[in-house]
Amino acid sequence: MEIQYILELIGTFVFAISGALAVDEKDQDWFGAGFTGFVTAIGGGTLRDMLLGSYPLVWIGDVRFLYAIFAGIVFAAIFYKLLLRLRRTLSLFDTLGIALFTVVGTEKALSLGVDPVIAAIMGMFTAVMGGVIRDTLTNETPVIFQKEVYASACLAGAFMYIGLAHFDVQRTVAFLSSVILIIIIRLVAVKYNLSLPKFKRYN
């Protein structure tokens, strides 16, 4: 079983947890929490595959991804209080999800022969779009529209992976190094309240 496949399954599981926990304080039932977890887990990968013309969509072609989603939702329900505390500590599950999905999305785009810059963008889309859908469903402002280092952390990790692949670094090392970079950037940014410069118009 390849590292890419394992990371995508783990990322799917983690994002399902993130989505299910996002209904906290929304007084949702099991279906609401499950649906939010489901679309959070598949949203980015589905958009990526559609843009790249890769069919069947990854979660349709492999039922294990559905099992990972269901497992994440049930896991979130069983360990709800503990996970909620962890989620509020540096957005743990969202950070893990975007790190894993960025690298997986970048690798898949590269495997389909697209330009490396496009591959990095596809990696970012894979990582952030599930969260955008999650936040929209729960009436929250998506994180990418807030003053946080989020999508830019994904791009940094994606370009690091592309660079390491270019220099023929062992694949597993490249995967894990890029994932760790995204996690570090994201956690440091959240801990110290770092953000990119504000967009301004100059007339």
Rank of each mutant, 00 (worst) to 15 (best):
E2L: 12
I6K: 12
G11K: 03
G11R: 06
F15V: 03
I17N: 00
V23G: 01
D24C: 04
Q28F: 13
W30F: 15
W30K: 06
F35C: 05
F38P: 01
G43I: 11
G43W: 02
G43C: 05
G45W: 08
T46M: 14
D49G: 13
D62Y: 04
I73K: 10
K81Q: 12
R87T: 09
T89D: 13
F93E: 02
G97K: 04
I98A: 05
A99T: 02
E107F: 04
K108R: 12
G113M: 13
A120K: 00
G123D: 02
A127I: 07
A127S: 12
A127F: 06
V128G: 00
G130D: 11
V132G: 10
I133V: 15
T138M: 13
N139R: 15
Q146R: 15
V149R: 06
Y150D: 00
Y150A: 04
A151R: 07
A151D: 08
A153W: 02
M160S: 12
Y161N: 01
L164P: 08
H166G: 11
F167D: 03
V169L: 13
V169F: 15
T172S: 13
V173T: 15
A174S: 14
I180V: 15
L181W: 09
I182H: 10
I183P: 03
I185K: 07
R186M: 06
Y192S: 02
Y192H: 12
N193E: 11
N193T: 06
L196F: 11
P197L: 05
K198I: 12
K200V: 10
K200E: 06
K200N: 02
